[in-house]
Nucleic acid binder design. Sequence first.
DNA 1: TTCGTATTGATATGTTATAACATCCGGTCT
DNA 2: AGACCGGATGTTATAACATATCAATACGAA
Lengths: 160, 160
Amino acid sequence: MSGPIGFQCQNHSVCMSTMLAQAQDHCTALGLRLTPVRRRTLEILLAEHRALGAYDVLKHLAAEGLGTQPPVAYRALDFLVKAGFAHKIEALNAYTACVHPGQDHAPAFLICRNCQSVAEADTAPAKGRLGDAARAAGFVIERTVVEATGLCPDCVGEAA
Amino acid sequence: MSGPIGFQCQNHSVCMSTMLAQAQDHCTALGLRLTPVRRRTLEILLAEHRALGAYDVLKHLAAEGLGTQPPVAYRALDFLVKAGFAHKIEALNAYTACVHPGQDHAPAFLICRNCQSVAEADTAPAKGRLGDAARAAGFVIERTVVEATGLCPDCVGEAA
DNA sequence: TTCGTATTGATATGTTATAACATCCGGTCT
DNA sequence: AGACCGGATGTTATAACATATCAATACGAA
Ligand SMILES: [Zn+2]
Ligand SMILES: [Zn+2]
Ligand SMILES: [Zn+2]
Ligand SMILES: [Zn+2]
């Protein structure tokens, strides 16, 4: 599979449990601790192919008695991002589950402005013209943010 | 010139006044109003090849008696962004002057994490692999955010 | 001049994110 | 067991970023 993952997800419960299992395995392998709050936070993100704000996540956690204060959500999200199980969508100040957890990669996102769905594509931005420009300038790229906003297949259809 | 603009700026006062003049011309041509607050805000951004937060801008404006409340800065910044004279850097929640004002383009940014300098490169992200992925998925791109974080030429040298 | 619209002034509020410090809990060493 | 240490949580407070709303004013067009 090489296209963006997300829009074409059909059986989402499989999708979710696969990702969760991969995260669990990765934690076990590296000695990281997927604590209840962290695990639940990941589940909350995985439940939708959308980006959720930290305070949205916090509402879910609070409803389940897992914490009521902002640091609870931010700590869990930071852990997931550092561990490679989630990404921050800068254009939305929101977070979304990664679709190939644990692997070190340079994600790119397709964000629907109508239904808020988010798909993760795997590109190598530093290898294209941006990389050329950076090399020409002597700039060393460490991280890239690539986010495209527009209309997803469903919403393009609707508009017509 | 095709590389990223910003790191190689030598005579900055020329750089500044050129940009300002272009903005002024563009406003005149389109009937837009480059009011004192807007003009000063652009000058503040142009003064550095960095991104400034809205509240940083506001501090400058306040010191000059041009307004003390957040909406003053946000209105001016929104005007400059819409007019194509400035860009928002999503990864920093901050704003930077555009280096080719008025032209409709898809900018990409190189952001130094050490000295906070920002360079604007001109790429066509929707034409690369991201565009391919989007087309394959039926996603219609309307806007792209491309931001690379790393070390600028000066700071790479320093580190060594 | 009158009208309509863009801009500014002013107040309040909403949203996102982190600092700081106390406490708990699980493993290790003695 | 007891002391210790580091990571994880609990808790309070605040910093940083952004917008809603409505009144007042300036400005160009008719
Ligand atoms: Zn990912
Ligand atoms: Zn959609
Ligand atoms: Zn630009
Ligand atoms: Zn630098």
